[in-house]
Amino acid sequence: MKTLVLVVAVSAVLAAYYAYNVSEDQMLESGFQTFINTYEKSYGSVEEYNFRFEAYKSNLNKIAEENRKNPQAHFAINQFGDFTDADMKKLLGYRGGKTNQPTKFTPTDVTPADWSHLWKNTVKNQGICGSCWTFSATAVFEARHAIKNGYTTEIKTFYSEQELIDCIKTKDSQGCNGGIATDAYEFLNHHQFCSQELYPYQGIDGTCQLDKCAAGPNDDGRTDLPSGDVNAVLTELTNGPVAVAVDATRWAFYTSGIVTDCDNELNHGVTLTKTDGSNFVQIRNSWGPAWGESGNIRLGINNVCGFADSATVPKF
């Protein structure tokens, strides 16, 4: 009799266990189906579907971990919900690496600054191309060129990231395989910058077409800011946006708030546009307006993600 009772009890426990797990799997797959419909995803085979479903489940765990580590920010499923780490790495094209510089920061010496209005809240999308460095360099060039010419409320001419992708081939800069903003400003010291209209973005490595850009502007070189010196970078921000590099390894699912926990391997070129002077800086990304806070992310002001470790601006 005792054996029968034990068997019944174990069977009940196993039934409850399997029911729970079936329910959990069903909930995960239901969430994945919602993700597919929301972002209009399609997969060419059952194998691809299963592969992306596993990536989706893994990303849910990463999101939970980021929300735990960053209590002032929020992370959630977005357009990158079925991406693997290898997929995300394709978007991280800064090739400068780690700087290992100590952070210098005196909070009382920071003046608030905000240039985010210059683009009228439009954020570009680099696509699946490691061209972030060209978007960072271009955004700062077009903003500072506008400011120099008296346009402090909006940018009048947008310039061509594709020109930089196609025409700059150096040790550190190789188009969609990554690069650095300093190479862009060296190039633009000797070549005209073509407008986006005349040399539109393709998101692939193409053939250099400098003949399109004979009438564009140049810069007069660049100024590199002291590595790790937050005050120097934010002082320069009062003159206009700054091209910076960050560690964006864990940014994929950011949706809002202030990120305070980050790694320190510089791998992504972005644009510093704003600081409140006490708590955060705002970064303009190049993953489109649907990502983050209308295409932007806020970081803790004390050099979170290394935003002050590799900063540069063009001279005019």
Score class of each variant (00 low, 15 high):
Val8Leu: 14
Gly277Ser: 07
Gly150His: 12
Lys171Asn: 11
Leu6Met: 13
Asn189His: 15
Lys41Leu: 09
Ala146Arg: 08
Asn21Leu: 11
Ala243Ser: 06
Ala143Val: 15
Val230Lys: 01
Val123Trp: 01
Ala146Lys: 11
Lys98Ser: 10
Asp263Phe: 04
Tyr49Leu: 13
Val304Arg: 01
Ala12Val: 07
Tyr17Arg: 09
Glu154Trp: 10
Ile180Pro: 03
Ser131Arg: 03
Asn231Met: 05
Val46Leu: 12
Ala55Ser: 15
Ala9Gln: 02
Asn125Cys: 05
Tyr199Asn: 15
Leu14Asp: 01
Thr273Ser: 09
Val233Trp: 09
Tyr151Phe: 13
Val123Asn: 02
Trp291Leu: 11
Ile283Gln: 00
Ala290Val: 13
Asp309Gln: 09
Thr275Gln: 06
Gly93Arg: 01
Asn231Val: 05
Ser58Pro: 08
Phe75Trp: 04
Gln196Trp: 05
Gly178Ile: 00
Ala113Ser: 01
Ala248Lys: 07
Ser256Phe: 06
Ala76Gly: 02
Lys169Cys: 08
Ala290Tyr: 13
Leu91Glu: 14
Phe187Ser: 09
Tyr56Gln: 07
Glu47Leu: 13
Arg284Ala: 03
Asp224Leu: 04
Asn125Met: 06
Asp166Lys: 05
Gln126Ala: 00
Gln126Glu: 00
Thr111Ser: 02
Lys124Asn: 08
Asn121Ile: 05
Pro226His: 08
Tyr56Ile: 06
Ser42Met: 02
Ser286Arg: 01
Asn296Ile: 10
Thr255Leu: 00
Val270Tyr: 03
Val233Leu: 04
Gln72Tyr: 11
Asp172His: 14
Thr111Tyr: 01
Lys98Arg: 08
Thr273Phe: 01
Pro112Cys: 02
Ile77Met: 14
Leu210Val: 05
Glu65Trp: 14
Gln126Val: 02
Ser256Thr: 11
Asp276Leu: 02
Ala86Asp: 11
Leu266Gly: 11
